[in-house]
Each structure stands twice: as C-alpha cells, then as structure tokens.
Design a protein around this nucleic acid. Structure first.
Length: 420
RNA sequence: GGAGGGCUACGCUAACCGGCAAGCGGACGGUCUUGAAAACCGUUGCCCGCAAGGGCUUGUGGGUUCGAGUCCCACGCCCUCCGCCA
C-alpha cells in the first residue's frame, strides 16, 4: 500500500513516479474514492460526536428527563444507521482500489514497461573456457543420477522433480553453506510456515496482484507460499518493534511453491522452472533511513555466495515495469549457463520500503513517535537453480562435475562422477 | 475431532445491575541539578482537521440498545485435558 496522504498532497509526484513503471491505471479513481471517503467520514464523525453527547446526557439526566432525551438520542442513532453503510462501502471501494496501486519506484530505477528495458549493470567472473561441447544441466544431472524428472512427472505432473543421491547432498551442502554465511552477518535462521492465511499474502503484496501464481488450499483457506518472504514479513505483523533492535535480519529456509501459470512450454525440463523448490532467503526489517544501506548489504551477500561458488554472473537492474507490486527497487543476479548458452536469474533482491510494512502494520517506536519500518528481501540461495549453475559451469569433458573448494567442506566430495 | 479456561493500550492489571476504559510499571519529553539519581509534570495505538477540536481502539466480525469491555451469535488464537498422530 502506498501512502494515501502523499497521493492526496502531491498526486503529480505519484503520477510521475508511476510513469517509470509505464503508467499505472486507476490512479485518478483512487484519488476520487479517497475524497469521497473522507467527506463521508467527516459527516459520520460529526454525527457520532452528536450521538456520544446525547448518550452521555442520558446517563446524567434526571429520571423525569430520561424519556424525552432517549427519544432525541434515538433520532440521531437512526440518522447514523442510515449513513454508516455508505461510509463502509466507500471505505471498501477505496481499500480495494488503493491495494492495487504498486510501490513508487526509487529514482535510480530505469523507466520501462517490461523485461526489455532492464539494464545490465555489470558482469562478474569469466565464463569457463571449455574446449568441448558443454552439456546442459538436464543431461549432466540425469547422467550423474542427481535428479529424476520423468518419475517426478509420473507422480505429480510436469515441473515436479525428484532430487536424488548426491543431488540431495549438494542441496544440503548449499543450504548449510548459505545459512552459515548469513549467520556470520547477523541473520537469525528461521524455518517459517509455508501455509499462510490470506492476510499474509495480501500484506506482502502477492495478493491481489498475483493471485494466479500461488496454490490455494481451499478446504482450509490457506495459501502455499512461493517464497519464505511471505511468512518472514508476517512474523512481526501488527507489532511495534523496539528501535534499538533494528535491523532485524532473518535467514529463512523453506520449500517454495509456484503454479507457473502461463509459462507453458518454457523450460519444461529440469530444475529451472519447477512447481516446488527449496530456498534460503534473506529478510530484513530496518529503520526507514537505513534501508538502502541494507539493500546493498543483501546484494553483497548474494555476490559473495556466487563468487565463492565460482559462478559467473551479471547484475541486472529491473526497470519500473518489471518490479512487481511491492518493490521500490529490484536487482537480479543472472548466472551464465554454458550448456544452455544463456543467462538465468538465480537471485533477486528487493527493497519494498514501507509498502509491506504499511499493509502489515509493522512499526518502530523512536523519537517523534511511531514510524513504519522498511522491509527488504533477497535470495541467498535458490537451491535448484544454483545446482543448475554449478553443474553447467563446473562440468568437465567426460561429463563429470567438480565442486568449488568453498563448498567441499559441506559436500564431503570434490567431484561428482558416474559410479563414484 | 471433543470438553473446559482465557484474550483489555508498549508490559502487567482493574472496571458492581450496560452509563466518559481506572491504576501500576516501562519508555520518551520537560522541570529541578555542577552532573546524575530521586521527586514532580506531561506524553504513550490509529484516523480526520491549519488549528480548536472530534472520531475510532478491550482478539476478529456481526447482533440487541439512546449507549456494550460488560448481554447474545459466529469465528480466530493461546492454555489444560481426552482422542488421533510423525
């Protein structure tokens, strides 16, 4: 949710910011709904004040006066009863319309309507110099017995994969590696719930905008989360956090579920685009003035991890139109895949400023009263895709794969080969 | 799944038969002080308003009433016990 006061006081500022997203429909209607709501609110509050006065007078009145005063108060109550439903409807309409307005992009975000306007900021690491025809991760993974997509499809449908054998050991190693690194940097490990109430989805901005992307358990009215961000952000919903405790940093580890509706035919094989994967996620609650520093810290952690894993990547700044609803700025890291011959998103970092905090009512108390905190999230290690990048970049001519030294203490092996 | 108990502001706790949610603590601001402590005063969540002021807030949503923390209904969460269970 954006700040309606800002929209009220400086609508052109908001409009200009939304231009960088390629324009946001419904802005004028929110302004009109807000005005109508406030007019009704003022009128209802005037009547309530009158009613409160009348009611209090009854309590103090002489017995002989009571009958007459009750009749008078009843008349005010009737007028209120007629007006209140209109106020409630106006509030509902305003709420529904305002909830669809996305966050305001940060000034450093490039303007643009979609993917094509994203900006590659820089590259890091050299693509491996392979003197043979590189295999893609599906060929490597199947040959080495790390995954079984065919049986995944048999059991659960396409885009479900069994991770097997050393594929599992690789996952456990990556998870522990990422969690250890975050522990050193002040993040508290958390395994959050993956089934959440609608309020949690709504509060984090995944609803109403992206409803079709997530699984819903209708019977119990819960959603399966597509990232631990949802449950981590909701952890402190409705709380006022002690200013001295900020920043609060969590390293969430959970399975993530995505319906991938509308992606039929894209990346149908392997681990790149699946309905279920595991991920270590960074999530921070900060003072408003600290969030851009925290954003850089989260990004730095992501780069540290990819560099340690010796995966070449590029840094991509998302343009306004590719931000999603809650982010004010989003930066992805895309790993180079020699086998596939292209780049693939492996991490994403967002500063959602006060957008989620306003919806979830997460505040901090400091000098000058309470303020909304800022929330940030960023991948530490999306296990499936990281395995893809590891396999393709560290493959050898014979189809075996070496493990980067930084990860060996966690895997216990340095090479993955057939029969080993 | 069944039975019982509970939920009041930042924390802890009151409020008779329905009549302005009281008190203690914490935190913050101020007075006093060489500095501090103590003491005293003020503030404490949300909304509208330039302000004066007003409205909302007792887990959530409804209902009864001129008026609900209090009465009625539904739901959520926590605790105890029974059943089931990795």
């Amino acid at each position: 949710m954006i700040d309606l006061r800002l929209l009220r006081d400086d609508p052109e500022h908001v409009r200009a910011a939304y231009e960088r997203r390629g324009g946001v429909p419904g802005l004028d209607s929110v302004i009109a709904l807000d005005r109508r709501h406030r007019e009704l609110l003022a009128e209802v509050e005037r009547l309530r004040a009158e009613q409160n006065r009348a009611s209090r007078a009854i309590g103090r009145a002489e017995p002989s006066e009571r009958e007459r005063r009750i009749r008078e108060a009843r008349e005010v109550a009737d007028r209120l009863r007629a007006l209140e439903p209109r106020l409630e409807e106006a509030a509902r309409e305003l709420e529904a319309a305002a909830a669809r307005l996305p966050n305001l992009p940060h000034p450093s975000v490039p303007a643009g309507a979609g993917e094509d306007d994203n900006v590659v900021e820089r590259h890091s690491g050299e693509p491996p110099d392979l003197d043979f025809e590189p295999r893609d991760h599906v060929a490597l993974g199947e040959r080495l017995g790390l995954l079984d997509a065919e049986r995944g499809a048999k059991t659960s449908g396409s885009r479900f994969v069994y991770l097997t054998g050393r594929g599992v050991l690789l996952e456990l190693a990556l998870v522990r590696f990422a969690v250890d690194l975050l522990l050193e940097r002040g993040f508290e490990p958390v395994v959050p719930p993956v089934l959440v109430r609608e309020e949690a989805m709504y509060g984090t901005g995944f609803l109403p905008a992206e409803e079709h992307e997530y699984y819903r358990i209708e019977r119990d009215d819960l959603y399966l989360t597509g990232t631990s961000e949802v449950a981590l952000a909701s952890m402190h919903a409705g709380e006022i956090l002690d200013d001295a405790l900020l920043p609060l940093r969590y390293a969430g580890f959970s399975t993530c579920f995505r319906r991938e509706a509308g992606s039929y035919g894209r990346e149908t094989k392997g681990l790149v685009r699946v309905h279920q994967f595991d991920k270590v996620e960074q999530f921070s609650f900060t003072r408003p003035e600290d969030s851009w520093d925290e954003f850089e810290a989260i990004r730095a952690n992501q780069e540290t991890i990819l560099q340690a894993l010796e995966i070449p990547y590029r840094v991509v700044i998302m343009c306004g139109g590719d931000l999603g609803s809650s982010a004010a700025k989003k930066v992805d890291l895309e790993a180079w895949l020699p086998g596939a011959g292209r780049y693939m998103e492996v991490t994403s970092a967002s500063n959602t400023t006060d957008y989620q905090a306003r919806r979830l009512q997460i505040r901090t108390r400091g000098e000058g009263g309470t303020r909304l905190v800022h929330t940030l999230n960023g991948t530490a290690c999306a296990v499936g895709r990281t395995i893809v990048a590891l396999l393709e970049n560290h493959q050898r001519a014979d189809g075996s794969v070496t493990i980067p030294p930084a990860l060996r203490p966690y895997t216990g092996f340095g090479v993955i080969d057939v029969g080993e």
